[in-house]
Design a protein around this nucleic acid. Structure first.
Length: 297
DNA sequence: TTAGGGTTACAG
DNA sequence: CTGTAACCCTAA
């Protein structure tokens, strides 16, 4: 395998994939300008991104134009076997619930425009209901915190990469619109009857823990389930989805960190913020493992 | 700026 | 020498 000049680090690759997942392939300048990725890709040019993406696509089994060109140039070889078509992993799978979320092919070219905008709108539209449903089902006495809500939704649906951001935005909107009331990091469905009075400060401390445990436990079950399903999947497919999962998890974790930081700066409870971050991180890591193999079968 | 052909550097 | 990954050049 090749040899390096300025080899790409896994972090850079992840950033690139995340960037493509967000903005779509070909938008290299845009990806580079995105503050989210500019940190990791500061030392790379738009051309570097393009070339790297090309390399990834080639080695991933998706025969990009590069491969053909090389083959043709080498010896007029007739393309070995190859089933033509640049591998269409996701094609139809991508499954159940919210297939609408961005599903950018992390590898291999051939990508449709991919509308991040519309899919986001769609997700947001549903989010209202999901949030309310989550809070109702959880039935926590003093309301549910964002961790628990996120865990519940994660458990039943396939949230988009920017799920955390959408959730935060939506929660805020629901609070300001009076549909939800927020009390120290916790959300309750409309007022109607606030029977408790002493949910002052430390109440959520223990619940925060519960929320976290739930996340792990549930996600673990989810992982096992996914593992079962992936028995007959090829390496290429696994690699492709692993890449996608990693890229998205990368973004989600980064956003969670930012959220935690903001919460802390905003003088809200630092512990709650940290718990939130931990929960999200572990959730994403687990989901990562799950999706590494899921789909494609 | 981007896509793609071409070149260089290096591992096997 | 060959394949691969990073890098370069240039048309559009």
């Amino acid at each position: 395998m090749g040899a390096p000049k300025q080899r790409w680090t896994p972090e850079e690759e992840a950033a690139l994939k995340a960037g493509v997942a967000k903005h779509g392939p070909g938008k290299w300048r845009t990806i580079l300008r995105d503050p989210e990725f500019s940190v990791l890709l500061r030392l790379r040019s738009n051309v570097d991104l393009k070339d790297k993406w090309r390399n990834l696509s080639v080695t991933a089994g998706g025969y990009g134009s590069r491969e053909k060109a090389r083959m043709a140039l080498k010896k007029g070889r007739h393309v070995p076997k190859v089933t033509a078509e640049p591998m269409d992993i996701d094609a139809n799978d991508m499954d159940s619930v919210d297939n609408a979320v961005i599903d950018a092919k992390p590898l291999a070219m051939a990508v449709e425009p991919l509308q991040v905008g519309s899919s986001s709108e769609k997700s947001v539209a549903r989010l209202d209901d999901l949030i309310l449903e989550a809070i109702k089902k959880l039935k926590e006495p003093s309301g549910s915190n964002k961790t628990a809500i996120a865990a519940y939704i994660e458990e039943q649906y396939w949230p988009p990469a920017d799920f955390q951001r959408l959730l935060s935005t939506k929660l805020k909107a629901l609070v300001s619109s009076g549909n939800l009331m927020k009390v120290n990091q916790k959300y309750r469905i409309a007022p109607s009857s606030l029977s408790l009075g002493g949910k002052s400060t430390k109440v959520y401390s223990t619940e925060e823990m519960n929320g976290e445990n739930n996340v792990k436990q549930l996600t673990k079950l989810q992982v096992d389930a996914e593992l079962e399903k992936m028995k007959g999947m090829t390496k290429e497919e696994a690699a492709a989805f692993a890449a996608k999962a990693v890229a998205e998890a990368e973004v989600a974790i980064a956003e969670a960190e930012e959220a935690a930081r903001v919460a802390e700066a905003a003088e809200t409870d630092a512990e709650a913020a940290k718990a939130f971050l931990d929960a999200v991180t572990s959730t994403m890591k687990n989901r990562n493992a799950a999706f590494k193999m899921l789909r494609a079968c």
